[in-house]
Structure formats: C-alpha cells, structure tokens
Write a protein that binds this DNA or RNA. Structure first.
Lengths: 272, 272
DNA sequence: TATAGACCGTACAGTAACTGTATGGTCAAT
DNA sequence: ATTGACCATACAGTTACTGTACGGTCTATA
C-alpha cells in the first residue's frame, strides 16, 4: 500500500545512507538498528524507507560524538522530550566545538605566517611592518622567576580563558622600550601568548595595531642584547621613535632540532 | 646552562601537555616522539622543554585528524616548506569542517524546533505564524514519479551543493495554492529539502519570509485532503488569501515507530 | 539450462590509537 | 625503615568499526 513499505536489501539501504554495509550488520548484531524484516527464504535483511529517519538520527548522533551505548540508551526510550533535551545539550557542545576549531584555525594561520616569514624573509634585515591589533594573555616576570614557574604561571593564566587546548607551547617575552633605551637588555617584564580571538570587554591586554619595527635573531639567546643594540641604532639612523614594549617570539621551534637554528622575531611599535 | 635543558619525568611532561603518560610511552614505542634521554641508572624517560614545541606540533596535527603514520612521515622530514604546505592544506580542510559543523547546527536547530512544536502546540489548531525566508533545494515531481525515483532525484540534487552529509532523511512536498483551490489535493508538484545556509546568488529556490498559515495532520497520508479542506475553510472564514505553495513536512519521523503517530506540518504563505 | 558475476549470509580476524592492569623496581619524605 | 607516589615493562582490553574467507543466492545473458 504505502510506497514507503517497499523492501530494500542491505546494500541498497547502506548506499542510500552513504554508509558501509558492515556497519548496518554490526548495528543489527548489537541491537541498535535492526532490519524491518528478514526474508525467511534466504535470510536476507530487509529494510524500508520508514526506517530511514531513525537511521539518520543515529548517524547524526554518531557525528556529534555520542557513543554507541549512549545512542542505544537514547533510542530505546526516545521521545520528543528526550530528543529535545539531548539536542539542546548537543547544540551547546557544537558551539564550543566550532569556537575551538576557529581558535585552532587562527593558531594554524600564525604558524603558517611564521613559516612564510622563514622562507621568504632576509632574516638579517630590519624592516617596517604594519600589524593588526592582537589580544594577549600576559603574566609578570623578572630575572628571579624560574623557567618552571614561568611555564606554570602562563598555563594557569591561559586556563582561565578556557579555549580547550591552546597549541602554544611557546610563549613570547616582552621588554619595555624604556629598559632597552637604558641598556637593560635582559630586563624582561612580561610573558605573553596571543589568544585567537579579539575582545576588548574581557579586559585582556592588547598588542596595539599600527607600525612596527621588525627584526630577527638566530641562535641561542646570548646574542639578543647585541641585536637589540643594532635595532636601536637602526631606529636612531632612521629617526624612528619606539614605544611600549618589544615583543619577542620564537617562530621556528617546531621545525628545528638544534638551538643554533632557533630564530626569534622581535617586533617593536613605532610612532606615526 | 640553558634553563630549558632541565630534565622532566614522563609524568611531569605529560601533565604539562595535558595528555596521558601512556600516550607518551606509546609514542616512544612507535618512534614518533622519543625522550631526550634515558636515565642509565633507573631507565626513566627524561624530557626537556625544548621538546615541547615538537610535541605540541604532533598534538596539533593529531587534533586535525592527521593519522599517526602521516604525522610520522611528516616529522621525519619536517621543514618550514613542508609545514607551510601541510598547514595550507589543513586550513582548507578546517574551513570545510567548520562549515559542515555549522550546517549540522542548523539541522539540529530544526529538529529541536520540531520537538518543541510537538511538545507545546495544540496540533488540531490552525494558527498564523511569521517565518524567516529559507533556502531550499527542490525537484519536480508528480503522481507518476515512484518513491525510489523521488529519493534518487532529491539526493542527486542535494549532492550538487556538497555540504558533506545532510541529515535530512525526510524531505517535504510542495503543492501549489492554485491546485488546492481547485480541489486537486494530491497534485504535488515539487519535493524540497531545506538547506542550512542562505544564499540568493546560488540561484536556489527560496521559501519566502513572512506570514504563514500553519496546521498539522496526524496519521497516514489519506487524511490530508480533508485537512486541506479545513484549512481552506479556515482561510475563507478569516478573510485570508493564500499564495504560492503549501509546504508539507513530517516533523516527528525520528521519534515514532508507527505510521499512525506520524505528524505532518503544513505551512502556506498568506498575503499581508 | 548453464554459468558468470553481483550480492547476501556467518564467522572470525584485524585496525587505529590509545588505555588499563598486573607486577615489580625506584625515589623522597617522614 | 617504611610509606606512598612514581617509574618500568608486558600484555590484555577498548571502541567502532572494517576486512577476509568461505559458501549460498539471485539475475541476466549465452
């Protein structure tokens, strides 16, 4: 009578829903989703179109990372109320997941940017660049803070803004232009990591947008003071006024094996 | 010398990166990520801070659904160039994934809306509602088109707009107001499924925004013509002019087991 | 009517990427 | 000296399938 009653074989039904036949067999075996009938003559599984929305619901939940046993419990006493409730929960989860993926995307772009820089820039050159404002998380530091403490401080601080995992093993250091001008090249005052969204209202520190002087340094940290002197000389020669903080960040830690190959990027905001 | 050279035990290193110790042991075993050293006295694995960015890169790739063996090949000849290339690929993938999740979100919201309707509405009532415009995919149909053909047509059509899996096992039917007014209550002209984004430029058909008359029908399809007559009478009594198409769609297929419980929602645009 | 090839069935083994458990040695603090 | 947290290896178990082997069935064509 009803055209939806037409019986389909397992292969047809599986391909209709874009899944593997074996998956249907397995769902049958575990009792999650059984064929509408079994042909008594040959034992073939028979499915019909009425079963499609049920299977699609299962596949939808599966895609939402609901475990099979949870799906099972749910399907056994499914109702408008329980589905509504489950969907509410899953919509919230999904929103978090989307936000997280967007954060990863931003992170990926930063890494990509770094790789581009490595491949295309002359690393001995000092150049003027334009930067968008960024949002940071920072913690105070000084020479007495040990490396372990630094790591702990910054992870504790970033965990407050729970974005799932932030793939920033490396954070950067900040040193004020005042310190640099006074020759105190190791007077690091803050650690920062950039966070992958921008928000004034969270009250987070901002790496200002605008013109920056950018330089690089290759090798271990001992050589950085000398490099800062070169940068200051360059600024003087070109009549540039530095302000705020210098931002230092390693850009190739994930592609090197030896410290000699380590490259740090130095960026300092300039007036105008 | 370098404070990053401080050695950490497997437990410390694992918790620093928010992963299971066993995972580190396993990565060691398969040669993906080995400790910086092994204490010759007690055989303990020793890690240091320099290794953190490498591990984070692995964990990042893992989160991007790169298989362990792919990560392995990549890590063995990693370079700025190869990482840049891989990242480009993964950013594209990620964009698709985000779009897909957003589509699922929309789908979830529709389901959720349906469940709310089921729980809160008096299904025998005819009501006036306001609807946002929606974007549809449609195919032509008529009485001669078999159910299998319908399924095939609509899946073929939706596949053109590749959104990954669309979890719409059920599609709706459209019948023109003209047909209804002439009493041809089974003159269905189109099948539609709603697609989870809105775009004029794609040239897709639109379910117009504005005022609609909404009714429901419970049970098998035989009773629908009678229900349409009631809707037409209602419209007449209330001086409402219908136009365009009537949109029919099952709203509870995923929570019922018997056709008698099947509920179809009927929505017809009205003037004004 | 014979046969090829596509499809169905069961049974069982294998997969990825961990994760847990059992058993025993090590380390740091009380 | 002992307690309890932590390390080691070896091996078994997990989830959600997926593949393979082997045999029966169905349908279209020669």
């Amino acid at each position: 009578m009803d055209k939806k009653d037409k019986l389909l074989t397992i292969g047809q039904f599986a391909s209709m829903h874009g899944i593997n036949k074996k998956t249907l067999m397995w769902y049958d075996e575990i009792g999650l989703f059984k064929p509408a009938a079994i042909n008594p003559k040959n034992g073939y599984r028979c499915y019909n179109y009425h079963q499609s929305p049920i299977l699609e619901t299962i596949l939808l939940l599966r895609e939402l990372d609901v475990s099979i046993s949870e799906i099972q419990t749910f399907m056994n006493n499914r109702s408008a109320g329980s589905l509504k409730c489950l969907l509410e929960e899953k919509i919230t989860d999904l929103d978090m997941q989307i936000t997280h993926l967007q954060a990863i995307r931003t992170d990926l772009c930063t890494h990509h940017q770094n790789m581009s820089t490595l491949l295309t820039m002359n690393l001995s050159e000092i150049s003027l660049i334009e930067k968008e404002a960024r949002c940071l998380v920072t913690v105070d530091t000084d020479q007495n803070v040990s490396f372990e403490q630094e790591v702990e401080l910054i992870t504790a601080e970033t965990e407050k803004y729970r974005l799932g995992r932030l793939h920033k093993a490396s954070y950067g250091s900040m040193i004020s232009v005042t310190s640099l001008l006074e020759g105190r090249f190791d007077d690091y005052q803050k650690l920062f990591i950039e966070i992958p969204f921008f928000s004034y209202q969270a009250g987070l520190p901002i790496m200002p947008g605008g013109k920056y002087l950018r330089a690089f340094h290759k090798g271990s940290w001992d050589g950085i003071p000398k490099r800062y002197q070169e940068i200051l000389d360059y600024a003087k020669d070109h009549n540039l006024t530095l302000h705020g903080f210098s931002y230092e960040m390693g850009i190739n830690e994930n592609v090197i094996d030896r410290i000699e190959d380590y490259i740090v990027q130095i960026e300092i905001p300039i007036d105008g």
